[in-house]
Design a protein around this nucleic acid. Structure first.
Lengths: 212, 212, 212, 212
DNA sequence: AATGAATGAGTCTTCATTCAT
DNA sequence: AATGAATGAAGACTCATTCAT
């Protein structure tokens, strides 16, 4: 089984990418069920049959597209690095801004409802979340917080929960402003959002008596 | 069952509710597009044609069902009241627990992906959010925070953003633990969640020098 | 069999007429298939179920309605009588005008497409035509023409064909002007129509050398 | 059948005609509403979905079919030409016979009830009649008659009405003999029909004193 | 590699008819 | 006599997938 049982066929050349880009656009606009293979093919400038040369089914195309999106987003994370010389709150704000700018990209905000809508119907999505996103994002930050607590810099809190709280504050703005289009009503800059989030979070978790 | 040899009984008063309950269940499991009117009818113990006596289309049934869910959730909010005698942090934790328990109800967690999935396709959903939820929940809390800031009890922050941060911390746990089934991996009690959220948030927003 | 095997149930009181009037209107506007029992019921100011108390099926209602229309039209014919004192051409013009005015009534022009559309699907219609209209109208006039020919007043022609020719000239104006709405384009008075028809027909059939 | 194990053959060029032929047959037998796309597909030896590759809806298929029939009938008209050497009445009889033979073709007699039945529901039909048939057939002949009247060969009559009278005499035999199946009762040859029609009409319109 | 004609299963919706009240 | 809730069969149209070319 090892390394041999990819569900999707080989994907030579540029075609697959071309198709995946079209799929992202069409799935993003219509949703998984309402999007048709014809629309995707037309968007990609090819014909329906051709898609099946590269993806065995609509569902596989959908998952492949999300996997690609997901990977692309994860690839950005390593670039987001802390500079040890910076003051932690300032550094977090800088990093947070970069992070939020990525999350608020149309590619991401279009993909979010798709993931949420199909999460319970497509096992591959659950796998991606449970195997990658949860450990890599949530648990990694939780470890960092644990360290700070042991050093007496941070207040004693449940680290996994505390880590997820931070993500929640970012996520809610992606959802409300972008996905739910609240930005048409409650305008706010990403700078203001991140400044407020980080300010609340830092004041919320640091140990008052600490040098902070 | 009891002694009835008839194919159906007249239940004009109850039918709509009965159908909406079935719709919630089936839409919740399958999503809007994948759910079929036949399944919903079967779940309701009636036949497809009967649904059309009460709802003019699948889409209208869907929206009606969400509206009912939504109303039911909003009806719970007034019951959540602050006791002036309580210390604010304790009171917030108590109220937060009640709130989170409602949010984590299967009825709500089933409806969330539906709303998110169809938000951009069904104008009625956008209206509900923009006209009711956003003002009633977010802006109301923002007003309360504004007041606290003017009184010098709270740090000067953007109140709309700060208010939404709190909601974001609650919401992320609904999404991850329930919708994304992370509770199968990272178990945590609602008590711990709320305690941590409220602790971070309170420390994050109160003015240190205040009597608080 | 005699007088006992009506396919339609008893029709007490005014209800049946009320329903038939509604049926004429709705069938006339929508056609047999597109008309719904609900529409007819609404038009009659009653509910669907009630129709079935008087007519066993949609088809029977349709046929009953046409039968009623048909009878009503036939009832008018005896009133159209020749005055022996009149000159034949003048008399024919007068009678023809009365006849055409009846044919161009909305009740008749609405019913015509219905009859033609369903003629081959509803045996009852064929029966009505073959058993009543054809003998009573066409053959009766043919007999009159035969007599004229024997008396040397009319040219020797095939009487059944010649009789039907006259009817054809009237019928074509009902079809084109009313059913096909040509009157919106080629306006013409019924007086002009009848004068021309009768003028052509009389000149066409009379024996030139006759005292005529 | 011959040696083919394939479910279908590509016949892109022929498909539309093939479908239209099937549609004519099925619509002709059942009427527009009662005919089903499945029946038409089966008659054409293909499946339902294939019809939709060539026609966007049942209604469009219906109109396309009638248009094709209509065109085919119109295409025959130019072939019907007068020979100047012939005596007018004889020539008219010859042409009339050809014309009536076309009208009494099953293709035409099947289409007539369809046109009449749906005339008021399908705007395309009204357009065809008002834009083509009425001017090309009725008004053209009316012009010819006008000329004859000016030359003193024909009696002074309303030319549009007089022209339509001739058509009416032909049409009534198509309707009664073929559509209404009266030929089962009143048999008559097309020769006798045309001879009688033309005889009446000619005697009816020529100026007695003319050289005719 | 690419096409696009063809399929056929699937779904919403309609509506004549039935029947408990 | 009248209602109207309920049924269930039927039909137009869609679309993922297949496959001959």
């Amino acid at each position: 089984m090892e390394g041999a049982s990819h569900k999707w066929k080989r994907q030579p050349g540029k075609r697959p990418d071309q198709i995946i880009q079209a799929a992202l656009k069409v799935f993003g606009n219509k949703g998984f069920q309402s999007a048709t293979m014809d629309e995707i093919a037309e968007e990609a400038g090819i014909t329906k049959g051709t898609i099946y040369l590269y993806f065995p089914s609509k569902e596989e195309l959908f998952v492949s597209m999300l996997r690609a999106q997901f990977q692309q987003a994860l690839d950005l994370l390593p670039k987001i690095a802390f500079d040890p010389a910076e003051d932690p709150e300032t550094a977090t704000k800088r990093v947070g801004k970069e992070f939020l700018d990525v999350l608020m990209t149309p590619e991401v905000t279009n993909a979010i409802p798709l993931v949420i809508a199909e999460f319970n119907h497509l096992p591959a999505l659950k796998d991606m979340y449970h195997a990658q996103l949860l450990p890599q994002a949530n648990l990694q930050l939780a470890g960092l917080l644990s360290l700070g607590m042991e050093l007496g810099l941070l207040r004693k809190l449940e680290p996994v929960i505390a880590a997820r709280c931070l993500f929640g504050m970012f996520f809610i703005f992606v959802m409300t402003q972008e996905v739910f289009r609240a930005k048409e009503i409650t305008q706010m800059s990403t700078d203001d959002i991140v400044d407020t989030i980080v300010s609340i979070y830092f004041h919320g978790i640091v140990e008052k008596g600490s040098s902070q």
